[in-house]
Amino acid sequence: MRNFLGFAAGLVFGIGLIISGMTDPAKVLNFLDILGPWDPSLAFVMGGASVTAFIGYRLIWRRERPVMGSQFDLPDSTAIDAPLLTGAAIFGMGWGLGGFCPGPAWTSLLIGSSGILIFLPAMLVGIVLAGFAKSSSSFASKGA
């Protein structure tokens, strides 16, 4: 049941990404290209998603605990520190270059463009490299 519900949530997320246009790098890059053929659609994605989550979270948090867990596990870090800002800047550069962030990258895998077949493995390598960088220094950030 746990796995089925996890799968269902992932499917809804992926279908949302596709319908919204987030899985098309051309749309993402045109959103970011404010001096070019600017397409503001993605602001509506972010708006629709965060307002829905804002309302939904507050309804859910009236419960004592999640349906399949013992407690709500929210990131407790509030620090706006160097790893957070450096990581966000590095991520943003990659996003602006390739037009993929992690969710749409996964959802694009089966569509099988040559670009995603390079991007996705490179992304996983990047995650592993960051893991090494973190474990070899205190330069790390915890929790969204």
Binding site: A88, G92, G94, A130
Partner: peptide
């Protein structure tokens, strides 16, 4: 791009 996205996130 993939490396930067993976490392940065």
């Amino acid at each position: 791009a993939g490396l930067l996205v993976g490392f940065g996130t």
